[in-house]
Every structure is written in structure tokens, then in C-alpha cells.
Write a protein that binds this DNA or RNA. Structure first.
Lengths: 236, 236
DNA sequence: GCGCACATTATTGTATACAATGCTTGCCCA
DNA sequence: TGGGCAAGCATTGTATACAATAATGTGCGC
């Protein structure tokens, strides 16, 4: 729920600084869907004028991570059921082929980077930092697109992953366990072996798994609002 | 090359107004890749402050339609060879399936709308308004995504189509004829018949056709710059 | 005449002031 | 007591003023 200023360094605070800080906070579930992002509040936190903050917010709105309601302000997005379905459908269209391509192009160095990624993920889990683990597991997918050397898809997946994080915040089923790192591990192996077909298939089933771990049957908007109101940004 | 203010109506000019006006001008090849978009210039044209113009430009930059160089200004984007390849690869991943879905869901009314689209396209061609014809043929693809009732994909295709327009401006081969409307006509028929498999296949080959009508072998950035400089926005 | 340094100018980046909108609160009246 | 209306307040939208940067032009020295 807090927006840490994190690194103190003397680098000038740009719109991108603010934008990625907020994005990361949302991604890590430190900001719940529906939370109001006041402009004055943000400019205080980051020590810049509202001009910069507004630029950052517009950028996030373009990624569907927040929603800007005219004369009302910016709020962390609350993806609808339909939108949630759509996001995963698009991911299922883009990512398997991308994983295939990554498997074809991956170098030993790339694989090492992915391994490192998983390691960090485990570290975060052990430290009980569930938010950071979620963030890293998302970045894993972006990293694969980078290995596939496809900037356009990488950008798209970056956004889709962030949106997925919001979807998970809203629709994740309590019952379903987090068996993610297994799937990621299998993917690394396939990519390391340059086994394109297997990588594609694994990514496909991984996404289907994720998709089915969501409760996308109902949970109307009203109830969402009520819940966030009652639990005050940190429930769930 | 000119940015017409078009409709005079008394509606207030918002960032979206400016954004879509510029977007449409680019889409119609009235603004060539590389053209500088000065902030003062635009605020004069549309009678709003630079604040609004900047918001509009940021929006266009997010869509990769223009490029904002820090302290230098905004320029109509010049997609690289790699980017051009990537854009069409993504379209080939997204659009065939979307066409399939559209064929499954299309109503008689939808088909009529598509027909109307084609008619307008022909009218534009007959009137010699090549720019408008290009614009309409792009919107045709967006319309199919709308029929498929997939907002997320529709948004993506909208952007990809605009980027494609820039790619066409830079890489279109003089030799290749414009046999587009035939492909679109065939697609309408498949969709009207609710023939999902055929629609998917037709869209696939249509995109491959488009892709192969581009000269994506070479044509280095330097030459592009020089050319636009020397020919002043209307060559090619 | 050529090239480099410096002054000038034009344009973008940022902050702030003001306007407009919507929300809240408290009052009035039924 | 409860609903509705109005005034005040908080917040966002827009315009403008100022600062910083890059582009341009000028003059000097070689």
C-alpha cells in the first residue's frame, strides 16, 4: 500500500521514474485495484510537480494499468471479467510462439539469466515477499520475449503481464496452489535444450494453467468495490 | 502534408481530438515519416495550449506512431526494417484467429457494415483519394476485431494498423499492385457465410500478401532521412 | 577562405497560477 | 427525522510563465 521512494540516488526524477515505481507497486500488489492515485499525493512523494505526475499517469493509463476518469482522478484499474478473459486469450496467442522462437535463439548466457531469475524468485518466496515473487514471475515471461529478440512482442507482453497481475489480484482462487516455479523450471530446460516444440507446448499449458487458476465465473463489479472499500486496500 | 481542422463544430478540442487528427493524417500519408511536429505549430492549428498538444503527442508516442526525442521534439516515426518485420509477425499471430472468431459471431448487420466499408473504399479510390482508401482498408481490419467482440485485440490491431501504414509509406514496392479490395471482399464472403476456417485462412494469406508486397530487404535509415530531406515530405 | 568559439534564437521541459468540476457538509424545510 | 439543496472545499483540467537545452548564426583568428 505504500509507495517507497526506494533508491535515493541523485538522479533526476522523470516521468518514467514515477511511472515505473507505481507500476511496480501495482505489480507487487502493494496497491490494490480501485485505489485512488491523487496527483498532489504523488507529487509530494516523488518531489516533482503535477506536470510530471500527470505524464506518468497518462503512460500507465495507456497500458490499462490505471484508469483515468475525467475530473475524478486516476485509480488502479479493476479489469472486468471480460477483460480478464481477453488478456489471457491474447497471451495464449502470443507467448507460445514466442517461447518457441526463444528456444531457437537462446544462448548459454540467456539460459543462465533465466536461471538467475528463478533463483531470485525462490529467494523472494523464502523471504515471504509474495509480491516480489509475483513480480519476478511476470518478468520471466518478458525475459523470454527478449531472448526471442522480438521487441514488439516483448513490449506487449510486458503490458499484458502487468494487467495479468491486476487480474490475479481480483480473480485468483484461494484454493489453487502456486505451482508456478515448476512450470518455469520446465520451460528453462526446454529452452536450454533448444527444444522449440517443447518450449511452445510448455508455455501453452503454463498459460492455460494460470488461466484456469482464476475464478472467472462471476464476482460482479459492485462486490469488488464493496470489498475494497471494506477491507481498505490490503484485503485478500 | 496539411493538417486540416476538418469539422468546425463547437465541440471543445481535447487531447483526443488532436491525437486522432494527427493519427489520421499520418494514416492517410498526408504526413510523411520523419516530419517534425512542433508543439507551437500544433497548438496554433487546433487553438489549444501546448499542454493539450503534449498530451496528444505522448499518446501517439505510446502507439509508436511518432517518436519523441528529448529536447528535440516529436517526429513522425520511421519504423526500422526489424520493426516492420515484427509488426507484421504480430499481426499474423493475432488477426487470423480474430477473423475466425468474427466469422463465428458475425450478424447480418455486421456484414452489411463491412460491405459499406468496402463501398466507401471504392468511392475513395475512384475519387483518386489514395490516402483515404488506405485509411479505410486499415479500419476494415479493426472492424473485424470489433465484430469478434474482442476489445483488447481490437485496440492492438488499431495500433498495429497505424504502424503498418507507416511501414507501407517507407517500404512499399512500387511494382506491386493494389489487389487489396479483392482479399477484403473474399473475407466478407467467408464471414457472411459464418465459415470460420475459411475466414482464418483468408486473413492469414491476406497478411502474407501484404507482408510480401513490402521491400524489407534493405533501405538503410540514412537513405530514408536523406530522401525525406531532399524530396520534402511528398516523394514516393 | 576555413574553422572554431561564442552569442543569439527557437523550441522543448518543468513548475505554477488560475479555472472548472465534482464531492462533502451542513442547513433548511417538509 | 429525512431528503434535498446550496455553499465551501478539495481535486483535476488548462493555460501560461520561466528554465534548460539544442540549433543557428556571427565574428574572430589563423
Amino acid at each position: 500500500m505504500t509507495l517507497t521512494t526506494s533508491h535515493s540516488s541523485s538522479a533526476p526524477v522523470t516521468a518514467d521514474t514515477v511511472s515505473s515505481a507505481v507500476s511496480q507497486a501495482i505489480h507487487q500488489h502493494r496497491l490494490a485495484p480501485g485505489t485512488k492515485l491523487g496527483e498532489d499525493e504523488l507529487s509530494d512523494i516523488y518531489g516533482v510537480s503535477r506536470t510530471i505526475v500527470r505524464t506518468a499517469l497518462q503512460s500507465l493509463a495507456h497500458q490499462h494499468i490505471i484508469e483515468i476518469k475525467r475530473n475524478r482522478g486516476a485509480f488502479v484499474a479493476q479489469p472486468s471479467l471480460t477483460e480478464a478473459q481477453e488478456v489471457f486469450e491474447v497471451r495464449e496467442l502470443l507467448e507460445p510462439r514466442t517461447a518457441r522462437s526463444a528456444a531457437q535463439k537462446a544462448t548459454a548466457n540467456d539460459v543462465a539469466l533465466l536461471q538467475d531469475h528463478i533463483t531470485q524468485e525462490h529467494t523472494a518466496i523464502d523471504a515471504g515477499d509474495r509480491g516480489r515473487a509475483l513480480y519476478l514471475s511476470g518478468k520471466f515471461h518478458v525475459e523470454i520475449a527478449r531472448i526471442a529478440q522480438h521487441q514488439t512482442i516483448a513490449d506487449m507482453i510486458n503490458v499484458l503481464v502487468a494487467r495479468s497481475s491486476l487480474i490475479i489480484a481480483l480473480y485468483w482462487r484461494r484454493e489453487s496452489a502456486i505451482c508456478e516455479s515448476q512450470a518455469h523450471h520446465a520451460l528453462i530446460n526446454a529452452i536450454g535444450d533448444n527444444d522449440a516444440a517443447r518450449a511452445e507446448e510448455l508455455m501453452q499449458s503454463h498459460l492455460v494453467d494460470l488461466h484456469s487458476a482464476l475464478n472467472l465465473k462471476e464476482l460482479p463489479a459492485v462486490e469488488q468495490d464493496l470489498r475494497t472499500m471494506l477491507l481498505g486496500n490490503q484485503g485478500r
